[in-house]
């Protein structure tokens, strides 16, 4: 048979009600990323464990606690989420995933394999967007994961950004690396898309209400 075997007509009917699908709370994670040659980069440190961070920063052990907690929280919120353990493990390796639960559903997500710590200078006495204030200046941290298969041996961010080899404990990262991922934010302006359509509506069919901008 060269056609769809079955189509659920009830779902397609617009006059009947469509059953809604129950899904988990929002998770974020685009796949668009920074590049090494972007101008606004910094050197970030990567630690596998909280202990490792403290050993290397004896005087600022507290800053490690904050960074670790911050990354762990971000991981729960922003790590990619999978319905099946198999799907998750095929990207993050055997034992690379954990099960999580919330409001009656459960899912699989990669286990944080380390955290990445970045620093920034204060601007006008406050930290840049996404950084928090500490006694040692503005800090930011994000979870990192290790991959399997073609991703084996690399550090990866929650959005899939590659941060170099796990042999290295530093990564040159762009400004987006520590950008927080809110689910809502204040909208400063609208209408920045759609102007081409207005400009390209021409005479005979400008008044039409049906023409497509596709093709």
């Amino acid at each position: 048979m060269k056609r769809s075997r079955q189509i659920n007509l009830d779902v397609m009917r617009k006059t009947a009600s469509v059953p809604s699908v129950k899904i988990l709370t929002a998770a974020i994670g685009g796949v668009i990323a920074l590049t090494a040659c972007s101008s606004n980069t910094q050197e970030a440190k990567i630690y596998r464990t909280l202990q490792e961070c403290k050993q290397q920063n004896v005087e600022k052990a507290e800053s490690c606690d904050a960074a670790y907690q911050h990354a762990l929280k971000a991981s729960t919120r922003t790590a990619p989420k999978y319905r099946s353990e198999y799907d998750c493990e095929s990207e993050f390796g055997r034992n690379g995933c954990q099960v999580n639960q919330a409001s009656g559903s459960s899912w699989f997500m990669p286990t944080m394999a380390g955290f990445m710590l970045g620093q920034a200078l204060t601007r006008n006495n406050s930290c840049p967007y996404g950084y928090y204030n500490t006694r040692w200046g503005c800090h930011a941290s994000q979870p990192v994961y290790t991959g399997s298969g073609s991703m084996y041996g690399g550090w990866y961010g929650a959005d899939g950004t590659h941060y170099g080899s796990t042999r290295s404990r530093t990564a040159r990262v762009g400004s987006k690396a520590f950008k927080p991922k809110p689910t809502a934010t204040r909208t400063m302006s609208r209408g920045g898309f759609g102007s081409t359509v207005a400009a390209k509506s021409w005479s005979s069919r400008a008044s039409s209400s049906s023409r497509s901008w596709g093709g």
Binding site: A184, M188, W213
Partner: peptide
């Protein structure tokens, strides 16, 4: 498309100020 917003922190937002992270656009 015309209602997409520029959200604080350089995000795209929808009409309810929700951040857009994944989008299908029928717009070239």
């Amino acid at each position: 498309v015309e209602d997409i917003g520029h959200g604080e922190g350089d995000f795209l937002t929808d009409f309810d100020d929700q951040v857009i992270t994944w989008m299908f656009k029928l717009y070239p």
